[in-house]
Every structure is written in structure tokens, then in C-alpha cells.
Amino acid sequence: MDLDALVSDAQARIAAATGSAALEQVRIDVLGRKAPLVLALRELGSLDPEERRARGADLNRARRSLEELVDRRARELAEAELEERLRSDRLDVTLPGIVPPRGYTHLIEGTRRDILDVFVGFGYRMVDGPEIDTVHYNFDALNHAPTHPSRQVTDTFYVCDDVVLRTHTSPVQIRTMEAGPPPVYMATAGRCYRRDTPDATHTAMFTQIEGLVVDRGITLGHLKGTLLGFARAIFGAEREVRLRPHFFPFTEPSVEVDVSCFNCARDGSPCRVCRGEGWVEILGAGMVDPNLYGYVDGYDPEEVSGFAFGMGVERVAGLRHDIPDIRLLWENDLRFMEQFG
């Protein structure tokens, strides 16, 4: 028996088997009880010991290699047959998935988080203050003259003569300075109320975010740098800011802050957002008026200086998302909310 010829013939037959059944027939033929190789092994006993050892080793090696070959081919064929079956077990993957109920983040909440996260990144600590507050915190300690127009009952909601719905988050400035000495790096957020007739840019209730920094050597340049960082984080990396002098009772100097328009080429052509001016007003700010330090302990205006800023969350959200009327934010219409996830 020519062992080499037998093995190579068997290898060819194994490779040529195209199905599990065919392979089983080949296995029986080359490794079964009646296969020449198996018969040859059985006949080894009739050989003399020396010849038996050499012949036996050859035959066993041949059998093992063929067994491996059969197994490998069997796996190949089984995989191919599985593939074939799976391919016919086919879903229409373009049908919709089974969606778990989805909830949406309110745009005010989302915007509020985005803004607060910027200031937390700048090293500010977040604090809270009450929505109903005293005239002392809302006006007096914020250096509002007794005749300041915003104190009027036409502008501010009064609960009683010395308690109001806060008109801004600025009372938290005083409460924060009362709570501890400088340095202060503080951000706060919350609802405020003004007796404004609702229109596309005003609601009687709105959300404000306020920041206060008091430390040695704080300058107007630090305010500008801080707000530039904020503007770039919220409105895009290319933004610039500019400060326009303004008046607020509790800051001196006071500024209104514009961000360069993010909606147009800023070449004066018509633009819905900046009306062709290239700049969009986003917030009010200024250096803390030294009179404020007189309402708290431990703040010497000769030693420390500071800045403060306040912005409307709805306005920022409206600008960022191109919302024509901020009253939409208070309607809780799921079709509206869905857009912003």
C-alpha cells in the first residue's frame, strides 16, 4: 500500500466534500472500520517488532492528520451551512425600532446648564437665593435710589411693602458677600419677575444667571476676558465681545455687553439676529459699585474690587436657537420641545 498516495487521495476527497453528509461518507471511506488505513493499522500485529514500530508511527501520523482535516472541514461546512440558514432568516431592518419612551430636556434647563458649566469651569461656585426677597436685598443694598423707577409698583411685584418677587438674581450678590469674606467667585441662577407686558422678547417671569467676582486687583479687563470666554463657549469660538458704557445702580462703571453676530457675515447686509449691526446685545455687567461693600462686613473697597454680570437665559436660548418668540419656551408644547431633545 502506498501510504503517501492514500493520504493525498484522502486529502483531495476531504477538500472536495461539499456538504456534511458527503463529508461523513468520505470519513467512513478513509477513516472507517473498513478503510485501508484502518485495516493496515489492524494488521500491524503481524509484523516483526522493528518494522511494526516504524510502520505504526507512519500510519498513526497519517490517521491523525486525516482526522484533523476531516474535523476542520466539518467545521467549515457547518459554518457555511449556518450562514446559509441565517441568510434566509431575514428581518426588514428598515422597519422602525421599538423606541423606549423618550423625555426631552427643556431648553431653559439645557441652556442654563450650558452657561453654568462655563462658569464652573472658570472656577465659580454655584449658590442659590430666594425668589421672594426683601426690598433690602433686591433694591436698597444694591444701591437703588429711593426713587429708582424699577421700584415702582408698575415695574415690580410686591408681596407687601418690604417684600417683592425678586426682579433680578442680583440680591444673591449681597447674600453671598454676607456669607463670607473675599475672594468670591460665584454664579447663581433662578427665576425672576418683572411687571412687563409679555411680548416676543419679554415675559413677566424669566430666568436669570448672575455672576459675581470680588478679589484683589480685579479690573474691567477681567470682566471683559471672562465674558469673552463665556461668549466663545456659548456662541462659538470665533466670537468677539465689546463693552458699551451703560448705567446700572449697583455697578460703576456699568456696561452692556455685545457679542459679535454669529448669524451673518457682519458686512452690514440684512440679518435677522443683529439687524445688520454685526453685534448682538447679550447681557449687562459692570464693576461692583463700592457702595455695595458698605452693606456687608469684611469688604474694603481700597483692598478688593470686583465685577458682576447678569443675563437672561431665555434670551441666550432664543439667540442660540433662533427662536422668534420666547413665549414659546413657556408653552411646553411637546412638538416644540422635541426639536431640542
Binding site: 464652573v120 476676558g225 463693552l243
Partner: peptide, 22 residues
């Protein structure tokens, strides 16, 4: 105010964080 440089405050103590309520 155009000539005011934009800078970040230099010496602040760090420790920015959301409060527990937030």
C-alpha cells in the same frame, strides 16, 4: 472701552463646583 484688554482673573483660588442642590 475698546482698548480695555480681555484677560482672565489671575489669582483665583479654584474650587469651582455645582452646589449639592444643583
Amino acid at each position: 472701552l475698546e482698548r480695555v484688554p480681555a484677560e482672565m482673573p489671575g489669582g483665583h483660588p479654584g474650587g469651582g463646583r455645582l452646589n449639592p442642590d444643583e
